[in-house]
């Protein structure tokens, strides 16, 4: 048996379908082939985090994307679309053909719309970052995604600026932009992509836990005593408090016994 170039794609498709994950696909206009949409990075809203997604109705001008098919190579004749080997970049608005080539024949084709994005949208209206990212929290507000208006497809490379720059740093991982605080204060996160920009208010706080770091004075442990902070400091005071409480309880017990004796 010959291991063809398309075999890994077919195998991946079988595995994904077996797992109930359907990648974004569209039937060819001639009904003879299926085109699979490939997100070139995780900023593309057409793909979800699990290998599934929806074939986008249009691609943003300036964004990149991939197309592949099990039965041949996907190509385009449009000079307005740059790229090769199944990876393309939308260069200008319009409707462009992508065809499935098998040998010297075109098996099928699809037309895809390219449209200029008009706005960037962030998944958060405010970013709150911390100086210490020592623990994960379910209400983490330091990470966000940026999507294009109308869920236009296509991957893009967001340029992120923190203003003022000394306030925080940022990183991009699988389409998620995360902000880590460097010093307390307020500012903004500016994201630029595809000729558009977006500004999000940023606040950097000392810690995710408001009173963390206080080991005395503040009653942060719900009345358990300073010994509960685990640092060993103040353990004697806690024992004293427990002894006092036990003595008070003993006094009450003695009083009750005396009353009953009366």
């Amino acid at each position: 048996m010959r291991w063809s170039r398309t075999a890994p794609i077919a195998l991946a498709a079988v595995v994904l379908h077996a797992c109930g994950i359907v990648p974004p696909t569209r039937e060819g206009e001639l009904g003879r082939g299926t085109f699979e949409y490939v997100c070139t990075n995780a900023t593309d809203s057409a793909c979800d985090d699990f290998g599934g997604g929806t074939f986008p109705g249009a691609i943003a001008v300036g964004a990149s994307f991939g197309l592949r098919a099990q039965s041949g190579q996907v190509m385009t004749a449009a000079p307005a679309v740059s790229g090769s080997s199944g990876t393309f970049r939308a260069s200008k608005p319009g409707t462009f053909a992508f065809y499935l080539m098998n040998g010297d024949e075109i098996v099928d084709y699809i037309h895809i719309k390219f449209r200029k994005a008009t706005a960037l949208t962030a998944s958060r209206s405010e970013i709150i970052a911390y100086l210490s990212s020592d623990s994960y929290s379910w209400d983490d507000r330091s990470s966000f995604r940026v999507v294009l208006d109308d869920y236009l497809g296509g991957s893009f490379a967001p340029q992120v600026d923190i203003e003022p720059a000394e306030l925080a740093t940022w990183s991009l991982d699988r389409g998620v932009i995360s902000v880590d605080g460097l010093q307390e204060g307020s500012g903004k996160v500016v994201v630029r992509a595809l000729g558009l920009s977006l500004s999000i208010p940023l606040e950097v706080r000392a810690s995710r836990w408001p009173d963390a770091g206080l080991d005395s004075g503040g009653d942060t442990d719900g009345g358990l005593g300073d010994g509960a902070d685990g640092d060993g400091v103040g353990d004697g005071a806690a024992e004293g408090a427990i002894d006092a409480a036990a003595e008070a309880l003993l006094d009450v017990t003695e009083d009750v016994a005396a009353d009953e004796g009366d």
């Binding site: 004749a77 679309v81 319009g94 075109i106 084709y109 037309h111």
Partner: peptide
């Protein structure tokens, strides 16, 4: 199979499109 906005009969095609 007509291209977007074009056929052989109307003698028009849009750049970047395909028609069977």
């Amino acid at each position: 199979h007509a291209a977007p906005g074009g056929t052989l009969e109307n003698g028009r095609m849009l750049e970047g499109t395909a028609m069977e």
